[in-house]
Design a protein around this nucleic acid. Structure first.
Length: 497
RNA sequence: GGCGCAUUCGUCUAGUGGUUAGGACGCAAGGUUCUCAACCUUGAAACAGGAGUUCAAUUCUCCUAUGCGCUGCCA
């Protein structure tokens, strides 16, 4: 039997990092075992589901490179089947109509209300005391026919227990007395989550359910539904949660953009880097290594390597330099400076394009220059954004000067105003404007002026690139070229700031 | 409240009945006679607590604590 797994997000917001990781693990598992990775959008909660959210999920998956097999399944399209299934269970006496009027509880206070209700019933097991549970068939039918609204609940046995072997958490058992008669169909005819999931997973032929640990206890309910339907439940593997730095739940509302996948795309992350980071948040191959290509992740991935304890996504609010997890930031930099240049180039191209710095010549007559330059400056960049911000001076004459760099490296040495302009003239005479030749000229010039090389170099760096950090100045001169180097050395713009 | 799950450096993690408890990020110090958030070297930094089993426990068992999850006509 071929293995089929699915990623089943509900489109009630953008794709967040926790869900992204679930998708990734499903994908890796499917590719590892040669199975299928399917996508199902769980949009049964019409009130909260949005098309925009669905789009964001699709974009996110595409960005991470998680291509799914077969057609997307929209759960809402199967609502009729879910209803029929509920009625089938009703027919078979495995479910019953509950005529209890619906209780309106606002979404906001729901968690507290549940806890409060539970406290009031403290010490009690779930009582099978719903008056409609054992209503005669005739009376139930009659009341339904008369138009009285009802929900359909699963009739959970009085005694016994469910169990399943979770691939991550091991044997799980739950006494029936801990499981109430769950609602399958709302009184407005709307199928509920547990029913919909089970029906769709059966329909899609899902063999392994890999999902967040928040569903661990729900699984028992779902197994009850499988049993009522006479179907074999799939294998389950529950994933540890990804927590906020305070070890609380990662929430879109509370933590905002830092938990959204698209944030990372927009912040200049290399997809492979973020994917790599995500893979290691809750799973490890058991070796002392951090960098894994997608192929390696697929090869090494196993359900056994998934951890049982939750992981903290260690972002820092209000700290621009550490705005997200340091390791993610580091990994992105690592990818930028070590990934094959040919893989990086398209990413840089799209960044430069969106910053309006892209020129077609970079893929034509200036191809070699462009590639060398990217290769030079990528060494100390952290995100793709750096190519258009810190690296702007390489692609445009219109670049900003960092005031701190100007003060420290230029204005602190007033002589530089004269010197750099003189250096420009000296450059005019250099025939072969290459690293070694430039070095000769600059060294000679430095000695003549009786100053330190650093003064000249740092001053030139501030003037030519606008920033205080960057590659070796000789390489910068060379890559900017003779003409641009001279022009910028003579420029007075920075001095007049 | 009940039920469930978890607990190794600040964070991500490796690991074992006997180890100097390893790696990575971050942090600190030093180096790199042009900078640097890059690079190199070094350093500080952990087995939640208590019992028990054992010659020996971070590792096995139990208890406690803490955190998280579920407990809904949400998903």
């Amino acid at each position: 039997m071929s293995i089929r797994v699915r990623f089943a997000p509900s489109p009630t917001g953008y794709l967040h990092v926790g869900a992204s990781r679930s998708a990734l693990y499903n994908y890796l598992y499917a590719r590892k075992v040669g199975g299928k990775f399917l996508l199902r959008i769980e949009d049964t909660d019409l009130a909260r589901s949005t098309e925009e959210s669905t789009r964001s999920i699709l974009e996110g998956l595409e960005w991470l490179g998680l291509d799914y097999d077969e057609e997307i399944v929209f759960q809402s399209a199967n609502a009729e089947k879910h209803r029929q299934t509920a009625y089938k269970l009703l027919e078979e006496g495995k479910a019953y109509r509950d005529f209890t009027p619906k209780e309106e509880v606002s979404d906001k206070n729901i968690k507290e209300a549940i806890a409060e209700r539970a406290r009031q019933h403290q010490g009690e097991k779930i009582m099978r005391d719903n008056p409609y549970r054992d209503l005669s068939r005739e009376e139930s039918d009659a009341r339904a026919e008369s138009g009285e609204p009802f929900a359909i609940r699963l009739k959970v046995s009085e005694t016994g227990k469910t169990n399943f072997e979770d691939a991550v958490y091991g044997l799980q058992e739950r006494d029936y007395s801990e499981i109430e008669d769950l609602v399958l169909l709302r009184s407005d005819g709307h199928p509920l989550y547990n029913l919909a999931v089970v029906c769709d997973d059966i329909e899609m032929g899902i063999t392994h359910v890999i999902r967040g640990q928040d569903h661990l206890t729900n699984t028992h309910k779902q197994i009850l539904i499988y049993e009522a339907l006479g179907k074999q439940p799939p294998k389950f593997a529950h994933l540890p949660l990804i927590l906020a730095p305070n070890k609380g739940k990662l929430s879109k509302r509370k933590h905002g953009e830092v938990v959204s996948l698209t944030t990372y795309r927009d912040a200049g992350f290399v997809p492979a880097a973020f994917r790599n980071f995500l893979a290691l948040l809750g799973w490890s191959a058991g070796e002392e290594r951090e960098i894994y290509s997608l192929e390696e992740l697929i090869e090494k991935f196993s359900l056994e390597g998934i951890h049982r304890s939750n992981a903290v996504f260690n972002f820092h609010e209000n700290d621009p330099r550490h705005w997200t997890d340091d390791k993610a930031l580091w990994m992105n930099a690592e990818y930028i400076r070590t990934m094959p240049l040919e893989d990086l180039l398209p990413l840089v191209k799209s960044e430069l394009k969106s910053a309006k710095l892209w020129r077609e010549e970079y893929e034509d007559e200036d191809k070699e220059w462009f590639e060398d330059t990217i290769n030079l400056i990528r060494q100390r960049f952290f995100t793709l954004k750096d190519f258009s911000s810190q690296g702007r001076a390489y692609f445009s004459e219109d670049y900003d000067f960092d005031p701190a760099a100007i003060d420290k490296n230029l204005k602190k040495h007033p002589d530089l105003r004269q010197w750099l302009s003189e250096l420009a003239e000296r450059f005019e005479t250099v025939e072969d404007f290459t690293h070694d030749e430039i070095e000769k000229v600059v060294k000679e010039f430095t000695e003549e002026k009786g100053t330190k090389l650093g003064v000249i170099m740092n001053g030139a760096r501030a003037l030519l690139t606008g920033v205080a950090v960057g590659p070796s100045m000789l390489a910068v001169f060379e890559t900017l070229g003779k003409e641009r180097s001279i022009r910028r050395l003579k420029s007075q713009i920075a001095w007049n700031m």
